[in-house]
Amino acid sequence: MAAGRVDLSVDLAGLRLVNPVLVASGTFGYGTEYADLVDVSKLGGIITKGITLQPREGNPPPRICETPAGMLNAIGLQNPGVEVFICDKLPALREFGIPVIVNIAGETADDYVALAARLSECEAIAALELNLSCPNVKQGGMHFGIDCALTRTVVGAVREATRLPLITKLSPNVTDIAALARAARDGGTDALSLINTLLGMNVDIRRRQPTLANVTGGLSGPAIRPVAVRMVWDVADAVDLPIVGMGGIMSAADALQFIMAGATAVAVGTANFVDPGVTGRIIKDLAVFCEEHGVARIADLIGAAHSEESR
């Protein structure tokens, strides 16, 4: 079987992706930032930087800090607001010709509903990703994503406001992520994405103060990958919903771990900063892996590690 004939397409809650490789919210801007370096049109899809109803200036710097095989960030949802997004960012995003998944964040359930309703009026949006898990804002964000009842309420309210597929992004900063996954399912989400960043902190010992102005930040990168794979595994066991897996994916081998743990698609995040060409390489190497292992459709590998377990 030639790599070119491997079927990399997957079905994510009715959304057909030509390959399972997305870019994670906040790591790829609105696509155009990377257009000089990456053939964006070859991605399975793009998940935008988080959008809020009103513009947000974000957190004061320093906003990022390198950690062992990872990084902390506390951007604070800096974004131009939904109206500017629709006027200035969406037209260029549409030009890439790939599914555009818009990440939305709010301080209240009403914010999420208003965002979903507004974005539902726009053409060329493939799905919404509900950011219930941003660890770096004082209001909203993770506040919703760590509480089962709130998660169910917010997802349910958004569900009624839009016909777009809903992907609920879960926080790893919980004791039992499967419980949150069930709450999102009960609210009516079509899919789940996990994990958002792990809450972390670094101290600048020379200045005797936290390195980040926000004190805490979200940990991403290869350092969190085993945690993310385990959570995808747990959630895949708990609910029958498609999963977008993410957390420290740097290679096709990493992506395959998520897929075999139960993810239908994967999102590449921090790796884009390290190597802008990483997504193209992952897509190519996924096909090579399938070819070498006699896999005709990558979809056949979704949850493959679970079936091994049950043998």
């Binding site: 930032e33 990377y34 513009p55 990022i64 960030n73 900063f273």
Partner: peptide, 26 residues
Amino acid sequence: EQWMGCGVGACLGCVIPTRASGVGRY
């Protein structure tokens, strides 16, 4: 200079404060 993530304007990690207010501040 500032600690930098992507280097191409996508991650919003390397900002510095300006006198502008609102979304153009950083």
